[in-house]
Nucleic acid binder design. Structure first.
Length: 689
RNA sequence: GCGGGCGUGAUGGAAUGGUAGACAUAUCAGACUUAAAAUCUGAAGGGGAUGUCCCCGUGUGGGUUCGAGUCCCACCGCCCGCACCA
């Protein structure tokens, strides 16, 4: 048997072998991350330097909800079926009970009923992703079991097994209310179950037909025959009233649930840390002794057969029970590699220590000041790490202050590239590196064999698809400075970017221009004054300000744009050698994060002291950043029609007077008085007529 | 399907609710040159008028506002995640 990952399952078959895939239950190891659901949710508020979108995604992932849990009595006297619902207010619209194919009731039936067994087997084909489950066609099977409605013992409801109900969430059973849930409605229309409205819109009270009526919970609606006596109320008010009613009458209770599931970390694979647990016939499952940790993987394994090599290794499994010393067997499941990525940063604070961490070192180096990763890690990796840090604190491996390990988070975009594929003799995909592909008039071909290549649209670079590019070509052709500047200059780092090397040459030319500018300035009299020295000084301070702001806000492309602009300003300046030398040295400093080598050369050439790398970062003088006069655009009815130059500190009334005197404004007004004049000091004027 | 994003010239992109297209690439024109390359200068969102003016324009359709690329609603397209890719 081989265990496949979700992504290796295609249409119910293994992606390589084509063998039919079935889902089986395994006994596995879990981390109880769900015990920290509330803590992980509440602490999101404190992560001020994380992107709001990531916090929101984690909040939704944890998925705190309040709802009603109650049971339906079976008419056959079997165990009641417990359901959890966030919309108990729609209970009068129930038309069936749905249970997961993995629900205990379904399992009991499976053993004795061939039809149920076949249906459940059908549901268990294919991948287990939430996406696969939710997008699959809705399938159901009436179990024949009937339950009583809690508010009306005469009202019997059928129990259906449905493939879209997840065993992992709530109780694995729901009541279906087709009038107010689209999935339930689709299901009821398909299987001809009744649709009962429980509330109608105030403005357009029509019964539900093909589209479920699901207004926001804050919108008031009119209730039909609500048991708790509601007439017009919002969904939220109705939910609260229903929970109170159920609790008062003793047939249900309000509960808070989280969508977050425990973290299944077992992998039936070789590449992962062994789970340090021993199975003993006498003592059961026993943790390995601390002094025997870490358990190492054996080196002598083979991958020539399917399945987990640890399972068939001749001796690795054999060990002594840590408790009684009798011969025992090691656990052969290994850990999810997410386990490693959840605490590597803490290990880095004491990489050679014999213990996992050293409190003192962790206390000194942690937390991570600025964490950078792709948005694809927004949920799993970042949530697991937050959980792990708390767990490591609880077990004495990290100090209290490390519970949130990443002070600031920046989510960089992905670098994408086209994917190049050929097919082998069994029609399986074979991927090729972009550097091995040549473009001809007839399309893309392999450089080596001339074989025609299929081109798949851009996707994030990944080793498995081989759509990766090594910057070494740019570096060897133009040098590291050019490569760094080029990579940083084009796109904002948080955005996805299609990789292209076009433009690297132009970058190289620009850097060459900067160097010849430096040479020209080096030839000037370093003490001479010139025309516009003050102006250049002012521009220098502005450049310092803007470039610094750009770098600090991760706007590297904008910072580089300002460097281009400042370079152009300097190249055109008629200022003297003193001012130009000063400006050029400052330019070198501002460029140094992107082009460290060139920056040092310029610095040295123009008599800078020591190294740019060790010189203090330039600081802009606030008073140099503003000009004495400003140019204000003049809008008439919101459209730009003219502009006016006024002293920076001119009062609103005076600005208004000057604006009304402008020809274009006079012409537009045509003798009439404006209805309103809006003056935003230093920015804009809008004349409304 | 659910959750989160993104959409601006030929291209990458800029723009605290305040002059849309900064800066750059590619392109075109000019200078230099016997010529080309390199270099330098300039043009350039679309359309009309052709020297200072007008109309249109940030995926589509509505809305809020004196003013919307930016905020709100609906839709379209693309991307990320959906717990065993990591």
């Amino acid at each position: 048997m081989t265990v496949l990952a979700n992504e290796q399952v295609e249409q119910g078959r293994g992606w390589r072998s084509g063998a039919l895939v079935e889902r089986r239950e395994l006994t596995q190891w879990f981390f109880r991350i769900s015990s920290m659901s509330e803590e992980l949710l509440a602490a999101l508020d404190g992560l001020e330097n994380w992107p709001a979108k990531v916090r929101l995604m984690q909040e939704n992932w944890i998925g705190k909800s309040r709802g009603l849990q109650f049971s339906f009595e079976r008419t056959d006297g079997g165990d009641p079926i417990s359901v959890y619902t966030t919309r108990p207010d729609t209970l009068m619209g129930a038309s069936f009970i749905g249970i997961s194919p993995d629900h205990p009731v379904a399992k009991a039936l499976e053993a004795e009923n061939a039809q149920v067994a076949a249906f459940v087997a059908e549901c268990r084909k294919g991948a287990t992703t939430e996406e696969a489950i939710e997008t699959a066609p809705k399938l159901g099977l009436d179990t024949g079991i009937r339950v009583r409605h809690p508010l009306d013992p005469e009202w019997e409801l059928p129990v259906w097994i449905a493939n879209f109900i997840l065993m992992d969430y709530g109780t694995g059973a729901i009541f279906g209310c087709p009038a107010h849930d689209q999935r339930d409605l689709d299901f009821c229309r398909k299987y001809d179950l009744p649709v009962i409205d429980t509330f109608l819109a105030l403005d357009n009270p029509r019964p539900v037909a093909t589209e479920a009526f699901v207004p926001p919970k804050t919108e008031p609606v009119r209730w039909l025959d609500h048991f708790a006596g509601l007439n017009v109320a919002t969904g939220q008010e109705a939910i609260d009233a229903t929970i109170d009613y159920a609790e008062a009458h003793g047939w249900g209770e309000g509960v808070t649930k989280y969508r977050l599931r425990d973290w299944g970390l077992s992998r039936q694979r070789y590449w992962g840390c062994p789970i340090p647990v021993v199975h003993c016939d006498a003592c059961g499952v026993v943790p390995e002794r601390k002094e025997n940790l870490p358990i190492r993987l054996p080196d002598d394994v083979s991958f020539d057969k399917p399945g987990n090599p640890l399972d068939r290794h001749p001796t690795w499994r054999d060990c002594a029970c840590p408790k009684c010393g009798a011969p025992a067997r090691r656990e052969t499941d290994t850990m999810d590699t997410f386990v490693d990525s959840s605490w590597y940063f803490a290990r880095f604070t004491a990489p050679r220590a014999q213990t996992p961490t050293v409190m003192e070192e962790a206390g000194y180096w942690m937390n991570v000041d600025q964490y950078i990763g792709g948005i694809e890690h927004a949920i799993l990796h970042l949530l697991y790490s937050r959980f792990f840090a708390r767990a490591m604190h609880a077990t004495g491996h990290l100090p209290e202050k490390c519970k949130e390990p990443f002070d600031a988070l920046f989510t960089q975009g992905m670098v994408t590239h086209e994917i190049y594929v050929t097919r082998d003799e069994r029609d399986r995909p074979v991927y090729h590196l972009p550097e091995h592909v040549e473009w001809h008039e007839s399309g893309a071909r392999l450089g080596a064999t001339g074989e025609s290549v299929e081109v798949i649209p851009s996707a994030k670079m990944s080793k498995s698809k081989k759509n990766v590019v090594d910057p070494v070509n740019i570096i060897s052709a133009y040098g590291a400075d050019t490569a760094r500047w080029f990579v940083l200059s084009d796109s904002p780092p948080e955005r996805d970017v299609e990789w292209t090397a076009a433009g690297a040459e132009a970058t190289h030319k620009h850097l060459a221009r900067v160097w010849s500018l430096c040479e020209r300035i080096a030839g000037m009299d370093a003490n001479a004054a010139g025309e516009g020295d003050d102006e250049l000084l002012r521009e220098t301070h502005k450049a310092v300000h803007e470039v610094t702001m750009g770098i600090e806000s991760f706007g590297f492309n904008v910072a580089i744009a300002k460097l281009y602009a400042f370079t152009n300003t300097l190249a055109r300046s008629k200022a003297g050698g003193a001012a130009q030398g000063q400006a050029m040295r400052t330019l070198a400093q501002l460029m140094s994060p992107m082009t460290p080598h060139l920056a040092e050369d310029i610095w040295h050439r123009l008599g800078g002291e020591g190294l740019v790398a060790t010189a203090p970062w330039p600081v802009a003088d606030e008073t140099m950043l503003t000009d004495d006069t400003v140019t204000l655009p003049i809008q008439i009815n919101g459209k730009r029609r003219a502009e006016i130059s006024v002293p920076r500190d001119m009062g609103k009334a005076e600005v208004e007077k000057s604006v009304l005197a402008v020809d274009a404004v006079q012409r537009a007004l045509n003798g009439a008085a404006p209805r309103k004049v809006i003056v935003v000091p230093g920015r804009i004027v809008n004349v409304v007529m």
